[in-house]
């Protein structure tokens, strides 16, 4: 017996569901973007529609470099949630001074090391309930 099918593990990315739709629209065409507060100019990661520093809800989209360096990582072998398989490489990637949490796709675990260069590699996941394509910001070894 299992309840697994009752959950959708991925975000609703379409324009009618999130103020952050632009992030996913750019990701779908291979661009990594985030928000910059239009009032205090703070660059955020992840993108946000409300600035926790100055309280503004005005923001601009800016593209980030699609390249980063591995800041920390771990390889999970077992115990992943249903729908995810190990070994899975979880990493903190430094991109333009920001820390981005992600996974490394197609990475041979033994070859992953701190300081390595990685490149954005958008990961297509299950379509949303309305049949729209969905992407997550994953990386791969450069």
């Amino acid at each position: 017996m299992s309840y697994f099918r009752a959950t959708d593990p991925f975000p609703l990315e379409s324009a009618e569901h999130t103020k952050l739709h632009e992030f996913y629209a750019r990701l779908a065409v291979g661009r990594l973007a985030t928000t910059r507060c239009a009032t205090c100019r703070r660059l955020a990661w992840p993108p946000r529609a409300f600035c926790g520093e100055c309280g503004s809800d005005r923001f601009d989209w800016v593209d980030l470099s699609g390249e980063g360096k591995i800041h920390a990582f771990t390889i999970q072998e077992v115990g992943l949630p249903a729908g995810f398989v190990g070994p899975r490489v979880f990493a903190i990637v430094k991109v333009d001074g920001l820390r981005v949490f992600s996974v490394l796709v197609d990475a041979e675990p033994a070859k992953v090391a701190i300081g390595q260069t990685v490149r954005l590699s958008p990961l297509r996941v299950a379509d949303d309930p309305n049949g729209n394509a969905r992407w997550l910001p994953a990386f791969r070894l450069a």
Binding site: M1, T7, P11, P46, T74, L80, P81, G83, F101, L136
Partner: peptide, 28 residues
């Protein structure tokens, strides 16, 4: 009904959009 259900649910303890969607739970 099983430990696997708990592992799935543990993903609700991290950020769904930016972390759990990648399969993150507590161990990593």
């Amino acid at each position: 009904p099983s430990g696997d259900e708990a592992i799935l649910n543990m993903g609700t303890g991290v950020d769904r959009e930016w972390e759990a969607s990648f399969g993150l739970t507590a161990p990593p």
